[in-house]
Amino acid sequence: MQLISLSFADLALAAIGVIALAVTTAMLRLGVARTLVVAAIRTAAQLCLVGLILEAVFAERAFVWIALIALTMLLLAGREAAARQTRRFTGGYGFAAGTISMFLSAFVTTVLTLVVVIRVEPWYTPQYAIPLLGMLLGNTMTGIALALDRLTQNAWREAAVIEARLALGATAGQAVADIRREAMRAGMIPMINAMAAAGIISLPGMMTGQILAGSPPWEAVKYQILIMFLIAAGTGFGTLSAVTLGARRLFDDRHRLRLERLRRARP
């Protein structure tokens, strides 16, 4: 099967649908028309920019550039995960906990996959490294953001229960165990659901893209399974790490609950 290359005129045709929707919602006074148009323009601009960068990096294949892009992706993901918290850790701790966890899980999983599973030469070949890392970071970020949000919200809401256990001689770990467990589950459930639904309820985006771009379905399916497993491991371990770091930060060395280390984000 030949890859049918899309022209800008083709994309402009596809944009007609979005414009029609914007006009309709404006007439219905739903108040989303403006945001819809801005979001559509952002999609086009951001993806074009990424496309240009990737074209350059793919042509160059220099390790420094790939490492720089990976680092930028990591920091942006860390910032995004921290920004999604209703109650944030003060002093950039939430950003640090999220970023370290994503580095440990997403980076390690990506490098291991490149070296052991795909065995591409050199292992940092950008066609493989960048998309893999992007998929992993995106999903790990969602898991970590959900889990940290659940952890801090519940610790705030159930401060009396935590302190009741501390006052009776529980360690910080025992006092926060239930809340920590619930936060870890909250971070992992979207990923577990996605694996259970894959292929039946949803055709995963990556697989769809590969098939559209001309890959045989069977090859696309194998890559999709690989990605799902990597996402599961990456998200899971990233969530465990972030929640562990976050739960530790809620207490000091005298096992006191220190909620003043959280501050409410402006809505």
Binding site: E158, A160, V161, E163, A164, R165, L166, A167, L168, G169, A170, T171, D178, D253, R254, H255, R256
Partner: peptide, 19 residues
């Protein structure tokens, strides 16, 4: 250790919480 101290010196809050 802080937990050992609190087992020995036990505080009963005015509104006890239950887990």
């Amino acid at each position: 250790a802080a937990p050992a101290w609190r087992r020995a010196v036990a505080y009963l809050p005015a509104e006890p919480a239950w887990w």
